[in-house]
Each structure stands twice: as C-alpha cells, then as structure tokens.
C-alpha cells in the first residue's frame, strides 16, 4: 500500500485550474520528484496534501487514512512535514526556538503545565531541547542556535527550515524547491543531505525542484506537471528522454 496517494485531486481557484486530476502514489522509503515549469501547480499540490488548501475534487490518503480537508496541524500530527518555497521561518525567534516549535507535537504543552513548569513538562522540554540541539549539530547550525533565524544567510535558512520540519518527527517530508538559490556545489551537498536524512530518519520524501542535477540524482521516480496536468511520470532516465517533457521544458526556458 502506498504511504501517500492522491486520487484525482483537482484544485481550482475561480476559473483557474491549478491542479487537475492529480494521481500520485508514493511508497514508503521512496524519494519522488515533482517537476514542471513555473505555475504548473506543484506548490498547490503540496498545499492540498498538507491541508493549506482543501481540494475542489478528489481525495488525499496518507497511511491508509483519508486526510482530505483536515486542518494543517492534524495532518502534521499524522506525520507529514514540509518546507516552503518562500522560506517561512519564525522571524522574531532564535534558530533553536524555531526548531523547538517543530517539537511542539511531542511536547504538546498545555497552558498550565507549561506556565507552571511542572516536572512532566520540564522533562519533555529538556528532551526536546536536547533533540533540537542534536538536529542543529547534525546540519552544522549549532553555533547559530541563539541567533535570530532571519539573520542567517539564505542557504542556512533553507537548512533550518528542513531541520524544523524534521523536528516534528515526520514519516513523510515534502520539500518545496530546497535548492533554490544554491550554487551547484551547495545543491550537490543538499542532494547528499536529502539521502542521508532519508536513511537516518526513515523518511519518505516528495520533492519539488528545478535543479535537474539534484532531481535526477536523488529521485527514484518523477512526476512532471504542466498547467496542472500530469504530462509524464517514471524513473529519471525515462523522464529525461520523454518528448513531452523536453518540449515543456524547452518551451518554458
């Protein structure tokens, strides 16, 4: 059974159909790419899966459960985490605090327990802090822990966003253009990083990316969208030689 699948998911905004009858099936442990020209509906697909948008039609299934139309936090609780194309860090909070918000699900603080710093809460908070610091160390951000998140350089902000998502302990991770703004060397590093966290945290990954080197290098399978339609799917080799894909990309670039 697929870990995540969408069944004929359609998302319309007024007269615009951003995503049309999308059918993806992602098996556990896979790294799957979602590519296509700008405006193809990739981010919208993420938004539907993570509860930012309720699809006009169709269903989203995760681990056998219908999660269509659930609130964002309920979907997060079920184990889907994501990053955003336009980085969405908590601006007024430190790097460490950003990651700690990711630990919220496991801390699940209630007002009284947290405010009074009761022992149960204190123990969970200490664990969360240790875990968050471990994650930061993992990606070389531990020396930035007390800095304001938005004071980090762009590349580190992207990494921080991934770490924050990992802190929710997801089983499925959605990455929206993680290599955007990175040079070839950095994107290569990112590719290794994605593989590493997949193995280390037992993740299944769905990835939107424009850097073809990254996509082809790291993905097991790829879906190609254009104007909301799925125009191709298959392994990297097949996609690279698909005439429709070549046309879509040459047309767009």
């Amino acid at each position: 059974m697929a870990l995540l699948s969408t069944e004929r998911v359609t998302m319309r905004f007024g007269g615009l159909t951003a995503v049309s009858r999308l059918d993806v099936r992602i098996e556990k442990d896979e790294i799957v790419g979602l590519i296509g020209p700008n405006g193809a509906g990739k981010t919208t697909a993420f938004n539907v899966i993570t509860g930012m948008n309720t699809p006009t039609e169709g269903r989203v299934l995760f681990a056998g459960e219908d999660i269509t139309g659930m609130a964002r936090h309920q979907i997060a609780r079920r184990g889907i985490a994501r990053t955003f194309q336009n980085i969405r860090l908590f601006k007024e909070m430190s790097v460490l605090e950003n990651v700690l918000v990711g630990c919220h699900l496991r801390l699940h603080p209630n007002l009284f327990e947290a405010t009074l710093h009761l022992p149960g809460y204190r123990r969970r908070d200490a664990e969360a802090r240790a875990f968050a610091m471990d994650l930061l160390r993992e990606v070389g951000l531990e020396s930035n822990a007390d800095e304001l998140a938005t004071s980090l350089p762009y590349g580190k902000q992207r990494r921080l966003e991934i770490v924050r998502a990992l802190a929710t302990r997801p089983s499925m991770l959605l990455l929206d253009e993680p290599a955007a703004g990175m040079n070839p060397h950095e994107s290569l590093e990112l590719m290794h990083f994605i593989r590493r966290i997949r193995d280390q945290f037992g993740l299944t990954i769905l990835l939107i990316e424009h850097h073809m080197q990254v996509v082809m290098g790291v993905c097991h399978r790829i879906y190609v969208l254009e104007y909301g339609q799925t125009i191709a799917q298959g392994d990297p080799a097949a996609i690279q030689n698909d005439p429709k894909v070549i046309e879509a990309y040459l047309g767009a670039q």
Partner: peptide
C-alpha cells in the same frame, strides 16, 4: 509567537 510570526508555518509544525 510562532502563530504570530507565521500562522501557516505554525500550523504545518502541528500547532
């Protein structure tokens, strides 16, 4: 503070 800084990201973190 997370809700204040970014409601959408806060929701995605399970808040």
């Amino acid at each position: 503070k997370a809700v204040r800084d970014d409601e959408i990201a806060a929701g995605a973190m399970g808040v």
